[in-house]
Design a protein around this nucleic acid. Structure first.
Lengths: 132, 132
DNA sequence: ACTTGACCTTCCCATCATGGGAAGCCCCAT
DNA sequence: ATGGGGCTTCCCATGATGGGAAGGTCAAGT
């Protein structure tokens, strides 16, 4: 029923290092300990670890995950709060995507105009140098 | 002709902090100094600073910029090398975009199914909790 | 000449999430 | 009892950036 940190890491996909870090920063409560000081994790703990892992996979920051965990644990929550958090994060993601897209398009355009052979002439460098 | 670090920062769009950092890490050579120790920048230095700034705006890492600077300074360079660097970076950008896109789409799908009212039921939390 | 304020210097610290590694203790199987 | 693997804490590093303190410098105004 109860496992040590290594097994918890394997079962949740969160590294032991990160489990300790989440505990240290208060994202997760302090784990119980054996007499000799080993951390011990039960089913509920593993569930929370998987929750955190999944949220990280979706790009949420630790601060956002703290909020999501609180909502998850609150049976009285309004789903509107969760949806608000999620959509705010989507806005964040979309903004970052737009920025990266703009960079990629600019570079693709420049690369198209660069013949890419043995000669030194290069519109990419010209652009970076502010000539062009 | 020669300016101090504050003016170089204003003229290049690179903060004084970052100019010192670039020098410390060897991305840029050590600036000349006045008798009293102030850094001094000439036209060529400002040009290089703007180059770095533009490359950062396009998402290149400092290591990549070091390579680009070397190519820029090498009159014997093959444009193929520059193009290769640029396209590798585009590949990087495209991969990151795909990752963010996947996250955004997943969250949008979940958010659509969340009615977002005062009730606690929430498919977003259900997904994070691994139920669903 | 002196003060004032803006500028420069170095040095240290923080971010955010993560990994590496050392020194030392613990537990189990041989 | 010994060996190996797992656990503990502690410190350090990443990448690119900003904040801020303590102290030196310079130019303009009194």
């Amino acid at each position: 029923m109860s496992v040590t940190i290594g097994e918890a890491a394997r079962a949740s996909g969160v590294s032991a290092k990160m489990i300790r870090y989440y505990e240290e920063t208060g994202l997760l409560g302090a784990a119980e300990r054996t007499a000799s000081g080993y951390r011990v994790y039960g089913e509920a703990d593993l569930h929370a670890l998987r929750f955190v892992r999944r949220a990280r996979d979706l790009g949420f920051s630790m601060a956002e995950i703290a909020d999501l965990l609180a909502l998850w644990r609150d049976r009285e929550r309004a789903s509107a709060a969760v949806k608000g958090l999620a959509l705010a994060h989507v806005g964040d993601l979309r903004r970052r995507i737009r920025e990266l897209e703009a960079m990629a398009r600019t570079l693709e355009t420049l690369a198209e105009r660069c013949c890419g052979d043995g000669r030194p002439d290069c519109p990419i460098l010209d652009d970076l140098a502010g000539e062009g």
